[in-house]
Design a protein around this nucleic acid. Structure first.
Lengths: 191, 191
DNA sequence: TATATAATTGAGCAATCGTTCAACAACTCG
DNA sequence: CGAGTTGTTGAACGATTGCTCAATTATATA
């Protein structure tokens, strides 16, 4: 009976994620979104409800993609090398922005206890939990010495990634060298 | 002949820095500034010219304060312990925001080659140069082993601080534990 | 093909954005 | 005290913000 939407919802969310990721929450206007998604306001609000709602979808999509990429790595190697490769992946060119979208969101809208910053926080917690699980697995398999604390390793690992990716947005910073230095820290965990 | 301004310009810039620091560039409206500085638009524009111009002043003030704090530390101890204490200072409570204002600005307005992001970048370069000089001094005095590269140490140190301070903005993150772990890395540079 | 249902359009809403400016107030100097 | 200079005020500007909605268009079913 009805009429089918003329768009691919998933593709729209992807495009919105890229826009929000690079330009930020306040830096992306409805006019920008309408242009990037080729949608008029009516369709947009029928499909997503609000700019906030689409941003939340974009955040979730971003986090899901990150988690999937990590899981893919974890399936094809040992836990510690997966973490190593995941770290080094942020030194490779490509992607709409370099810095983590969750961190960018947290720093932009944080402070006032916004729904968006809470969501970004929860998603960061989720990533940290995955890191922790991988460090624990690495410890169980002997890749990481028993005296280390997986929770602390995960927190430090996440902080390293945050610093690496933020630095990578600066012109004239050799992200690869920085990433390899951080990766070398992981290699020292065996002892 | 003229009439003296009724305000203390330095104090106004300090207040503006705190506001911009916590709420960000786009998140701080002229109405916010007028309220925080207790100024009407006419006085504001006569004094600072524009919101952008005041933000630039606030950025400079922020960076100058940071550099001064580091220099104070460097005068009362050895170079490496100064760096150590500077790192740990970000785990202490206090200050309008936790994350570095330069990094926040870079991540918020960066991408498009904005004048503000270029300024933030230049100021970050300045801080990195100070770190590099301190690492070099630490090396000259034997606090840091000769095989290390001060430039790489400074980059890594700055990335660590960035990650630490961004993490510190998240609820439920033990900033002190994270900072002490990073500080332990500095202690290992003697070998 | 007629009908019901939903997607799409685009003008335009109220609110807020950063900013301007003419009028007014206050102070210093002659 | 009067003249000259500058700070201060607050209304209001045009532009943009996120968003609404009546009208229109397209499609899947009966």
């Amino acid at each position: 009976m009805p009429r089918a939407p003329a768009y691919d919802r998933d593709a729209l969310i992807d495009r919105a994620r890229d826009l929000f990721w690079t330009r930020g929450w306040a830096g992306t206007s409805m006019k920008d979104l309408e242009a990037a998604l080729d949608m008029r306001p009516g369709s947009f609000y029928a499909a997503f409800g609000s700019k906030d709602a689409l941003f939340a979808l974009a955040l979730d999509r971003y986090a899901a993609d990150g988690a999937a990429a990590l899981e893919r790595l974890a399936e094809e190697t040992t836990p510690l090398t997966a973490l190593r490769r995941h770290l080094l992946s942020f030194a490779a060119p490509g992607g709409p922005a370099r810095a983590c979208m969750l961190v960018k969101t947290l720093l932009e809208v944080g402070g006032r206890e916004d729904a968006l910053s809470e969501r970004a926080n929860a998603l960061l917690d989720g990533m940290e939990a995955r890191f922790r699980a991988l460090f624990a697995a690495a410890q169980a398999s002997g890749e990481v010495a028993p005296h280390h604390n997986p929770a602390r390793l995960a927190r430090r690992y996440q902080a390293d990634i945050t610093g690496l990716r933020a630095s990578a947005e600066r012109p004239g910073v050799d992200a690869r060298a920085l990433a390899e230095e951080m990766a070398a820290d992981l290699d020292r965990l065996a002892a």
